[in-house]
Design a binder for these strands. Structure first.
Lengths: 345, 345
DNA sequence: TTGTAAGCGTTATCAG
DNA sequence: CTGATAACGCTTACAA
C-alpha cells in the first residue's frame, strides 16, 4: 500500500501503462521490458493496490457474506462450503453478522456497498423481501434459508420440513405414539419448518398431539436439558423426544440421564443436523443429516454464476435434501467401528 | 455502486463537495441544503462507494483475518471473539484460509494488500518469521499461536503448555502413573506445546514414560477412536489418557466403550479445549478450558490499537491462561444440573 | 457556508 | 509494442 505503480515505472524506465500491462498480461509486452518491470517490482516489493484496481474495473473479486452469527457448528460448516468454492474461483469473503437484527442487516449491507460483487444473505428471522430491499439494485444476491422466495432472486434452503417429517415417521415406526418436540426459537425459519414437519407427521400417521408435547427452546444444550426435565414432570410423559437440533438433543440426553431414564429403552431421542460428534455419543444419536457445507457451496456457485453472467442469469430456487440417520438413541441398535468411520468422513 | 455522488449533487443543486460534507459531517452545512441533499440521496437510493473512499482516505475500516481453516469449533469461537470487538468498533472482516500452506499464505496476504488496515495471522504450522515477511511493511499485524515471538510484532497465544501440564498433574493426583498422550499433528504448534506440557508433567511428577504411551493423531474424532484401540492393544495399557483436544477425547471415549472399558473406573480420560458439549457427555469430559473467543477479542483489540496509533504503539506479547475443568471422566465425580448450567454459559 | 479542482493508484482508450 | 492521458467515485485543500 506504500509503493505505487508510478515508482515501479520510473525505476524500470517505462510508463505506468506498461507496468500495468505486465502485471495483468492484458496486452503484449516485449520480454526484455517485462523482465525489467518485474525486477523493479521485486526490489521495490511492489504489488498492486487492489482498492484502486477495483475502483476502475468495477469488480472487487469479493463476496459479501451476511450471517446471523459467525460462530457455531452450522455457520462454521456453511462458511466451509462457501469458502471452498470462493477460494477455488479466486474470490474473497467479506463477512458480517446481523444477530438477526433488521437494523444491523441494513448497516451491514450498506457497508458492503461497492466492496463486493455479490452477497449471500442468511437471516432466518427476517423476511426475504426486506433483505432484498436493503441491497443495491444491481448487486446479485443469493438468499439462504429465508422466509420467502422472491421472484427473480436466487434462493436455497435446507428441506427442514421433510427431514423432520421423516424422522418423526421413523419414530412412529419404532412404535412410539407420544412424540414430543423440543422447539427452536419461534422466530427462526428453520425451527418453524422443523416443527411443521413434526406436526404434519403426527397428523399423517395418526399419532397423538397435545400442547404439552411441545416445549419451547432455543437450540442450546441447556434448553434441551431443561426441556427434558419439563417433559418428564408431565403426568403422562412422552416415549420419544424429537429435538430441533443436535445441541438440544445432547442437552436432553444429559437431562434424561440425571433423571435416570435410559435411552432408548425408556425414551427415544432424535436430533437434527447430524453434527460430527453425534456418532460418538452414548447412546449414539439418531439425527437428520444436513449437508450444510453443500448448502454453502451451492449458494456460492449460484452467486458466482449470477456475478459472472449478470445479464443472462436465470434465478433458481433450490432445496437441499436431508438424510435420515438412525442410530442407537431412536431404538436402532446398529453401531460398529465401521459405521463410525463411515459416518465421520 | 451505480448512483454516484455526482448525481446526488446535481439533483440537490449543490456541488459534490457539499454532498460529501453532508455525509461525513466534516464541515458545517446549512440545514436547508443538508435536507435537500438527504432528500436527493434518499430518492436516488444513494450511498457512498466505499472503495472510492478508501482510495483517498487510505483506510478501509477492514481487518484481514487469515486462519488455517474457517470451520471447526476453534476457529468458529475465535471468529466470534474477533467479530465481537471488530463489530463494536465499526470494522469489517475480510477472511481467508491458508490450510497451513506457505504458498496460500503468501497469496492471501497479497490479496489483502490495500484492502485491509491490518491483519490477524494464525498459522500454527508456519513460522512467524515467514508470516511477517509476506506482509506489506507498514501493515500492522497480530500473530496468534505462532512459533516465534518477533521483536516489534504483537503476538498472542494460548498457554497450551501450562494447560496440559496442569491436567496431567491432576491425573497424577488421581493416582495414575501410566498416562498416555493422544497427540495432534506434529507440525501443529498447539499440539506440540500440549505434548511438551504432558511430557514435562510426567517428568516433574516422577511418572513413567515410554514411547508406546505416545500415540499419533490429528485432532479428529476418528483419530481418538483409533488411538484408544491402539493403546489397549498394548501389553500394558495406560490407566489414563490425555487427549490433545476434546474431539479426540470424544473419539477415545467411543473407542473405549466398544472395548467395554468403563471410564473413569478402568481408565481416566481428559481432553483439551472444553468445547460446550464436554459437560453434556457421558461421562462428562474433564478438559482444559481455553477462552478462545477471548483470544480472538484480545487479538482484535491489539490490532485495532496498532492500527489507530500506528506511531506510538508498543507491541505486546500476551499469553491467555487456561483453566482446569475436572469432570467425571478424570475420576472427579461431581456433576449436577447446577454445574451444567454454570458451565455452559 | 459553499464551490473548484487536485489528487488517491489503477486500468482503459487512443495515438504513435 | 509503448506512452500519454482520461476516467473510476470520492475527499480535501484552497478560494470565494
Amino acid at each position: 500500500m506504500r509503493v505505487t505503480i508510478r515508482e515501479v515505472a520510473d525505476k524500470a524506465g517505462v510508463s505506468v501503462a506498461t507496468v500495468s500491462r505486465v502485471f495483468n498480461s492484458t496486452a503484449p509486452v516485449s520480454s526484455s521490458t517485462r523482465r525489467r518491470v518485474f525486477e523493479a517490482a521485486e526490489v521495490l516489493r511492489y504489488s498492486p493496490n487492489l482498492v484502486a484496481r477495483s475502483l476502475i474495473t468495477r469488480q472487487t473479486h469479493t463476496l459479501g457474506i451476511l450471517l446471523p452469527d459467525l460462530h457455531g457448528e452450522f455457520f462454521s460448516e456453511l462458511m466451509r462450503g462457501i469458502d471452498q468454492v470462493a477460494n477455488q474461483r479466486g474470490y474473497h469473503l467479506l463477512v458480517s453478522n446481523s444477530h438477526n437484527d433488521r437494523h444491523a442487516v441494513e448497516i451491514a449491507t450498506r457497508n458492503m456497498r461497492g466492496r463486493v460483487d455479490g452477497m449471500i444473505l442468511m437471516a432466518p428471522d427476517i423476511d426475504g423481501d426486506f433483505l432484498a430491499s436493503v441491497v443495491p439494485d444491481h448487486t446479485p444476491i443469493v438468499l439462504v434459508n429465508s422466509w420467502l422466495d422472491l421472484d427473480g432472486r436466487d434462493s436455497l434452503r435446507v428441506d427442514n420440513y421433510r427431514g423432520a417429517y421423516e424422522m418423526v415417521l421413523h419414530l412412529r415406526a419404532h412404535g412410539h405414539t407420544r412424540i414430543a418436540l423440543l422447539r427452536g426459537a419461534a422466530s427462526n425459519y428453520d425451527a418453524r419448518e422443523r416443527k411443521r414437519g413434526w406436526r404434519a407427521a403426527l397428523l399423517d400417521s395418526g399419532a397423538e398431539w397435545s400442547p404439552e408435547l411441545e416445549v419451547a427452546g432455543d437450540f442450546s444444550e441447556s434448553a434441551g436439558y431443561a426441556g427434558a426435565l419439563q417433559l418428564f414432570a408431565l403426568p403422562q410423559p412422552p416415549t420419544a423426544i424429537f429435538c430441533s437440533n443436535d445441541s438440544m438433543a445432547i442437552g436432553a440426553l444429559s437431562g434424561l440421564r440425571t433423571l435416570g431414564m435410559r435411552v432408548p429403552d425408556a425414551v427415544a431421542v432424535a436430533g437434527f443436523d447430524d453434527i460430527p460428534i453425534a456418532a460418538y455419543l452414548t447412546p449414539t444419536l439418531a439425527s437428520v443429516r444436513v449437508r450444510i457445507s453443500e448448502l454453502g457451496a451451492r449458494a456460492c456457485q449460484q452467486l458466482l454464476h449470477a456475478v459472472q453472467h449478470e445479464n443472462q442469469h436465470e434465478p433458481i430456487s433450490e432445496t437441499i435434501k436431508t438424510e435420515l440417520i438412525p442410530r442407537q438413541s431412536c431404538g436402532c441398535r446398529r453401531v460398529t467401528a465401521d459405521e463410525l468411520t463411515s459416518v465421520e468422513q
